[in-house]
Write a protein that binds this DNA or RNA. Structure first.
Lengths: 190, 190
DNA sequence: TTCGCTAACTAACGAGCGTTAGTTAGTTTA
DNA sequence: TAAACTAACTAACGCTCGTTAGTTAGCGAA
């Protein structure tokens, strides 16, 4: 029964608030209240409100890369690889739905240079999926789709799933991933 | 070259701001600035900041219903019906990308009772798609997928498309709809 | 025992917020 | 022409915001 460092406690509480009300609408006094301390006391542990947002966004980004990069270099059939990538991505979301929601919706309130860095990372992440689709099309595993459009569609199809893990684990991430994989790969038609 | 009523001008400018910075981070003074007037002058035309948000959210909701409801009652094959529904939905987004972005992301800053009303409308809208999937599954046009999960995935796959129409019409809505229809119906696999 | 560190506190700052009151110039209506 | 309406203005209200300064109680190390 270890107690977390105060800074981590702040991040965890802030995640929930940022997800529920949004970053701008969540005040430092709101965050402090959930910890039972005064707003000013937060500054013994963090240097600004935005630092909390940065921590959430960039640590989530890293989680996604850590999950996806080893898969992207595997030498396996492209449809299988995409399946593993989708499963990994959804796994990261499922493992931290609050932070995922913040990562996906509140990043635009980052100031520069964090904002530019964040956008670059996102582009880099999308390019991993683009490469997989390109390779799959070249090897005739996939149809000759519009790749940028399909990547965005795929990511959007995955990125709402944090909502599913909010109230209580009604759906397990594995079942969810399998459903989405099947839908993306083979479609809805019988 | 008609000049719009001031209230409509306010809504149009607010749409852009709310989309770019979010509702909470956009101040009445920001909105007034884009019109070249003082913040207080806005109150000759509207009664509160939230009223602007309500107007945007509920008029967009109505646009979606107007587009989708006639299709939902047509008597045509279910895959064709779904295709028409997807095309109609994306058409509404394409016709007003700023308002769509606000509709999709800022609704949670509505206060009650607007917020509850909004959520009910969304549920009702989702149910239209659920019915189409149910019918399609019953008539063996579609596979026996998990309907709620598939509806959410479908909506997410469509609802990012407002981003595409932001800078300048690079992609036409028809091509975009066809891509997404094909992907959802037949999948990515060759 | 004293020193220094940690993590809380109180108090307050300046800025910005949404909104209201009261006023005014110009335009439309009676 | 006089009255009423429209749509802007200035000024200000009360409140909340993120943040800073200075203080203090408790605790482990020298």
């Amino acid at each position: 029964m270890k107690t977390l460092p105060r800074k981590d406690q702040i991040r965890l509480k802030a995640q929930v608030l940022f997800r529920e009300k949004g970053y701008v609408a969540s005040s430092m006094r709101d965050i402090a209240d959930t910890l039972g301390i005064e707003a000013a006391s937060l500054y013994n542990h963090i240097s600004s409100k935005e630092e909390i947002l940065q921590d959430i966004c960039f640590s989530m980004a890293e989680s996604f890369f850590v999950a996806i990069e080893p898969i992207s270099t595997e030498n396996i059939p492209l449809d299988e690889k995409l399946k593993k990538a989708i499963t990994a991505h959804i796994g990261v979301i499922a493992a931290n739905s609050d932070a995922s929601a913040v990562f996906l919706h509140e990043w635009r309130h980052l100031g520069n240079p964090s904002l530019s860095d964040f956008k670059l990372m996102r582009r880099r992440y999308e390019r991993i999926f683009s490469s997989m689709l390109d390779d799959g099309i070249r090897t005739k595993v996939f149809r000759a789709v519009d790749v940028p459009l399909t990547v965005r569609t795929l990511l959007s199809a995955m990125n709402w799933t944090y909502e599913w893990y909010n109230p209580k684990g009604k759906v397990d991430p594995t079942a969810m991933s399998e459903h989405i994989c099947k839908l993306i790969l083979d479609g809805l038609r019988n």
